[in-house]
Nucleic acid binder design. Structure first.
Lengths: 112, 112
DNA sequence: AGTAAACTTAACCACATGGTTAAGTGTTCC
DNA sequence: GGAACACTTAACCATGTGGTTAAGTTTACT
């Protein structure tokens, strides 16, 4: 019930949706209300609510109600974890190291 | 039919599953067969096949059949794009810049 | 008080995901 | 040729996702 998959999974899952990334991009430039986030996109309020729920579950967004308006702001800390995970493999895809990685993989990496 | 969501979405979606990240981790240490990837985890071959399909769709893995064995290897290039996307917000979560970001957000960022 | 704004919840829908088992298909080995 | 291996496909299932509309609820305004 609690959707207990790990934090990293929830972060990547949250970022896997273009609309949600748009929300993150928008919030990076300052806090916004739910309506603000819906504006422009041709999407309903409830849809935004669900995206916000996903982002909050992942810890990427925090929000609080002030009067009848909910103000949402980016937390962005979990992105650091996601970035850190990707960085573990940086050596494999860094252009300068591509050849080296390939070489290592072929010479000693090939675990059976 | 072609599952035409953008590449970045597919990459994040592929990485959103712990089992799939395990596969990536495994492949980072060298190529492996489908059975190799299934070993250890208590999971069926078809399940691995589906994960591989997701990873290949995202371009994270390439594989080719040699005889009756399919050899899978990491491509990892799309991870660079994912990392690059995250880096756009590095300023917001970098510990050294947390205060500055907060300050900027509160003084001029608050778009209405 | 009464209306309007800004969510919020509920109910529903189509489709994707992640897993299963059972039954192929193509290779390799004896 | 025939058995064994290593996938591969098909069929099915439970849940999750992303969206909708319609009907609340809370707060603000006049």
């Amino acid at each position: 019930m609690v959707k207990c998959s790990d934090h990293l999974s929830q972060t990547f899952a949250a970022l896997a949706d273009p609309g949600r990334r748009q929300i993150v991009t928008r919030l990076a430039r300052g806090s916004a209300s739910v309506s603000d986030l819906a504006a422009g996109r041709g999407v309903s309020l409830p849809a935004i609510m669900k995206h916000l729920a996903a982002l909050e579950r992942a810890g990427l967004v925090r929000s609080e109600k002030a009067g009848r308006v909910r103000r949402c702001r980016l937390t962005a800390r979990p992105m650091r974890d996601a970035s850190a995970w990707l960085d573990k493999y940086r050596a494999l895809w860094d252009a300068r190291l591509d050849r080296l990685a390939e070489h290592l993989r072929q010479t000693k990496g090939d675990a059976r």
